[in-house]
Design a protein around this nucleic acid. Sequence first.
DNA 1: GTTGACCTTCCAGTAACTGGAAGCACTATC
DNA 2: GATAGTGCTTCCAGTTACTGGAAGGTCAAC
Lengths: 128, 128
Amino acid sequence: MNIGDVASKSGLPAKTIRYYEEIGLVCPPRGENGYRSFGEDELHKLAFLGRARALGFSIEDCRILLALYEDDGRESAQVKKVAEDHLKRIEEKIAQLQSMRSTLKHLVSSCAGDNRPNCPILNDLARD
Amino acid sequence: MNIGDVASKSGLPAKTIRYYEEIGLVCPPRGENGYRSFGEDELHKLAFLGRARALGFSIEDCRILLALYEDDGRESAQVKKVAEDHLKRIEEKIAQLQSMRSTLKHLVSSCAGDNRPNCPILNDLARD
DNA sequence: GTTGACCTTCCAGTAACTGGAAGCACTATC
DNA sequence: GATAGTGCTTCCAGTTACTGGAAGGTCAAC
């Protein structure tokens, strides 16, 4: 398979796949013409990476998860730890965004949004 | 005031203030010794920026908000638009993170987290 | 043989800082 | 007056995970 094939099958852009090769997440062999030649295993890996990224795991987490996936001697506790840490970071991020949302909602609803200059949003940002 | 003073008063790191000057958000005059010399107005601006950033506004949004703040002819509708667009983006982000959280929570709870290799998290990432 | 799609590499840019090095400036102390 | 310590300056590089684009080689079809 050429890169375009695995791109459409994995859902990842070709650019991203080249990038993943550059940083060592995958290393497809090359054909005579210099084209990357992907097998089912590489496609499987890329799909794995796509799903992990879709769950918000960082590239470094993905690297670890992939290594654990390929390590028969892994302990599920290692995987769980990575996922739990990530979950915790996500929950912190959600809390932070919810706090912003709450403040913003309040500000937006208090602003007339008309053609006059007075604005509670700016007043709040400029408060002393 | 030197940069260290406005840094502690505004809560922004000195590095960040220099960066804000570099991108034209503030432009404090310089003293004889080449040091940046901040007045109350610059401090006020920096505090404004700090609060806007804390609400998650992008630097470009901050630039717009600051310009509106300093424009007596502004219409509150302009400010409200910026805030509403930002609020919408935040809500989308929250929804995305909540979806990740939901999946992750489920996966984490289904993983034994022991010394055995079998792991539902990896199974899910590797599913066909 | 030429068009068009697909592949290659390389370089630059994104957002918003942050860390660190090298080197002045200022203040306090001996 | 020398020195130490802190604070200021600029400049360069690195962060995250790609993404866009240019210049050019390859392949299949007509």
